[in-house]
Computed example of a mutant assay.
Amino acid sequence: MFTGLVQGLGTLQSIDSDKLRITCLPPSSELIMLDLALGDSVAVDGVCLTVVDILSQGFIAVASPETRDRSTLGSGAQYVNLETSLKVGSKLGGHFVTGHVDGTGTLKSAVQTATSWEMIFNTASAQVARYILSKGSIAVNGISLTVADCNPEGSCFMAAVIPLTYAETNLQYLVPGSLVNLEGDILGKYVEKFLRLGAASPEDLGWDSQVPRSLENMTSTFLAEHGYL
């Protein structure tokens, strides 16, 4: 689990069909390497990878063919965003990011304003678009961003990126057409599933027949009768 608050940049090099060499760049390399251990999870451009070897200024990670196909890791990105996994008790300044990207998108435009960079992204993936909504959270290359606006389908959205985030992540290197990894808010995915299951009959799901058939029937009276209040 990650927060979407990038700790530094690195470079990526493919060294085998399933292995990647990630070199951490200063000045944040010490932060990434501080207590890195074999088996640790690191978000590389928003993709959760497992450390299988530790180098003096970086690490080797395994990326399956599916991971490469679903993300930008197979496209030879020059700079990648890095974040080590969330530790118990750490501050959660972004939002919960799993590192399991839903798909990719492209940068449409980036315009600098007096207070931010207004960046517009497109995605052709319905799996991504379904979780994008105005004022919701989205991870772009592992960066926790807030959707400022989007079209009804969610296939085009805009995020206002503060100068600090822009300058310290690989957003600064993107040009129109650049591919990015996208991960929707995991909370929205669970809500969607609960609503979908709520529309099905308890018998179809193998549940007790007393389970309410919709969220509207999940009343305080029902909860009290079944020992939840």
Rank of each mutant, 00 (worst) to 15 (best):
P65D: 13
E66Y: 15
R68M: 09
R68L: 08
D69M: 11
R70V: 08
S71F: 06
T72D: 12
L73C: 11
L73E: 01
L73W: 14
G74R: 08
G74C: 08
S75G: 03
G76T: 11
G76Q: 13
G76F: 08
A77T: 15
Q78S: 13
Q78Y: 08
Y79E: 01
Y79G: 01
V80D: 05
N81V: 05
L82Y: 15
L82W: 15
E83F: 03
E83V: 05
E83K: 12
E83N: 14
T84M: 07
L86P: 05
L86F: 14
V88Q: 13
G89I: 06
S90F: 14
K91N: 12
G93Q: 11
G94F: 06
G94R: 02
F96N: 07
F96M: 11
F96V: 04
F96S: 03
V97A: 08
T98L: 14
T98G: 14
T98K: 01
D102T: 03
G103F: 00
G103D: 04
G103Y: 01
G105H: 03
G105W: 00
G105P: 02
T106F: 00
T106P: 02
T106R: 10
K108D: 10
K108L: 14
A110S: 14
A110V: 09
V111K: 13
V111M: 10
Q112K: 07
T113V: 09
A114E: 15
A114M: 12
A114Y: 01
A114H: 12
S116A: 13
S116G: 01
W117P: 02
E118A: 09
M119H: 02
M119P: 03
I120V: 15
F121L: 06
F121S: 07
T123P: 07
S125R: 04
S125C: 02
A126K: 09
Q127A: 15
V128I: 08
V128G: 01
V128W: 10
A129G: 10
A129W: 00
R130F: 09
I132E: 06
L133E: 00
L133D: 00
S134Y: 03
G136E: 09
G136W: 01
S137Q: 03
A139V: 06
A139P: 07
V140L: 06
V140H: 08
N141F: 12
N141C: 15
G142C: 07
G142A: 10
I143C: 14
I143F: 02
S144N: 05
S144E: 01
T146F: 00
A148E: 14
D149I: 02
D149V: 03
N151T: 12
N151E: 07
P152W: 07
E153F: 03
E153T: 09
C156G: 01
C156D: 00
F157P: 02
A159H: 01
A159S: 15
V161N: 01
V161P: 07
V161L: 11
I162K: 13
P163A: 03
P163M: 03
P163L: 06
P163I: 00
L164Y: 15
T165D: 10
Y166F: 14
Y166L: 13
A167D: 14
A167C: 07
E168Q: 15
T169C: 04
N170C: 11
L171I: 11
L171Y: 13
Q172S: 09
L174H: 05
V175F: 05
V175N: 12
P176H: 12
G177F: 00
S178I: 05
V180H: 00
N181Y: 11
L182E: 13
D185A: 05
L187G: 09
L187M: 15
G188H: 10
G188T: 01
V191Q: 04
